[in-house]
């Protein structure tokens, strides 16, 4: 077994575009769930509107790509308003169901053949992100060290994506230490108490949903730009659960948690895949497992990890243990 390959595969993914996109999505969730306590189970819907907002704008109107990004961001704010204004007055767990249902509605509509002219239906929209690569400052070739290397286009997407991750993390850090962050946490702890002290919890929850949604939408744009393509299969509901896994690995509420959580998640996820494939290829499992089983097996592993983390280490790696131990009712 080639452990060097297993390791380098993991490192490559930990640094790659996917890890950055997951980090953005989880940072957004962290604002909503970690700081404000909003159970957004439809974060993937925000990624979707980011991607489709960009793609449709460029494809339909011929607008420049930056205008598409702007539309994607506005679409995320709009989605936050549409979801938040009616639901944030209801019980907390209702938001979970409304958001997961809304994200699924968006996905079904995006994949519908009856909207094919607009969304591309199941075949998606491609070929709208070319101008992003025209700006690529790296000359063609491969960059990296040893087995971990990337071509110039991937490197360009990575550079932008990780820059966004840093900017988003700085934003969360600034918010978290401010009186605004204090209000967010008070809503997480007890909304009624916050209201009784003159805080307009309703408006602040919508803001939080929008801020986290916009950061998530950036993650969606990163994914779509990376493929220069988006269709409905990108945005399945369980994607949101992986974002929660990333957030919980890193530590709910911690600024750096979602970033390191995403890197660790992808390192383990990819190494495991590599390991399983090699083991299966070399017949370690005999006839019991075939190469198509590697995908589901590592997802089963993710599920198990999520359960065990939640039970035995709810604060994740960088969260505050003492805080996590206080009864969250």
């Amino acid at each position: 077994m080639d452990f060097g390959k297993i390791f380098s595969d993991g490192v490559r993914e930990a640094l790659g575009v996917n890890a950055a996109a997951y980090a953005l999505a989880a940072i957004g969730l962290n604002v909503q769930y970690g700081l404000t306590g909003l159970l957004n189970f439809g974060q993937v819907g925000f990624l979707l509107v980011g991607a489709y907002g960009t793609a449709i704008t460029v494809k339909e109107t011929g607008a420049p790509l930056w205008a598409g990004f702007l539309v994607g961001i506005l679409a995320a704010i709009g989605l936050a308003a549409v979801l938040g204004i009616p639901t944030l007055r209801l019980r907390a767990d209702y938001l979970a169901i409304v958001t997961i249902a809304s994200a699924e509605i968006l996905r079904v509509l995006a994949g519908s053949r009856h909207l094919e002219g607009f969304t591309g239906g199941p075949f998606g929209i491609r070929g709208w992100a070319g101008s992003f690569y025209d700006l690529n400052p790296f000359s063609p070739g491969r960059y990296g060290a040893g087995k971990v290397s990337f071509d110039h286009n991937t490197l360009w997407v990575m550079t932008v994506a990780w820059t966004l991750v840093i900017l988003a993390s700085v934003l969360v850090w600034l918010l978290k230490r401010s009186p605004y962050g204090r209000v967010l946490r008070s809503i997480r702890e007890d909304e009624d108490a916050a209201r009784s002290l003159g805080k307009n919890a309703y408006v602040i929850k919508i803001q939080s949903l929008a801020v986290g949604g916009v950061i998530g939408a950036l993650g969606g744009m990163v994914i779509a730009v990376n493929f220069q393509f988006t269709n409905d299969d990108f945005w399945l509901s369980p994607f949101t659960f992986l974002m929660y896994t990333v957030l919980i690995i890193g530590g709910v509420g911690s600024v750096i948690g979602p970033v390191l959580g995403a890197m660790l998640f992808w390192f383990v996820y990819q190494s495991l895949d590599s390991l399983l494939r090699q083991a299966i290829h070399e017949g370690v499992f005999g006839d019991v497992l075939t190469s198509t089983d590697a995908g589901p097996l590592r997802l089963a592993f993710v599920g198990l990890t999520l359960m065990l983390l939640m039970i035995y280490r709810p604060q994740g790696i960088f969260g505050n243990r003492q805080e996590a131990l206080i009864d969250d009712r």
Binding site: N18, I223, D233, F234, L236, P238, Y269, A294, G295, L299
Partner: peptide, 8 residues
């Protein structure tokens, strides 16, 4: 990878 439903 992001979408367990089509995993593997």
């Amino acid at each position: 990878i992001a979408a367990p439903a089509s995993a593997g």
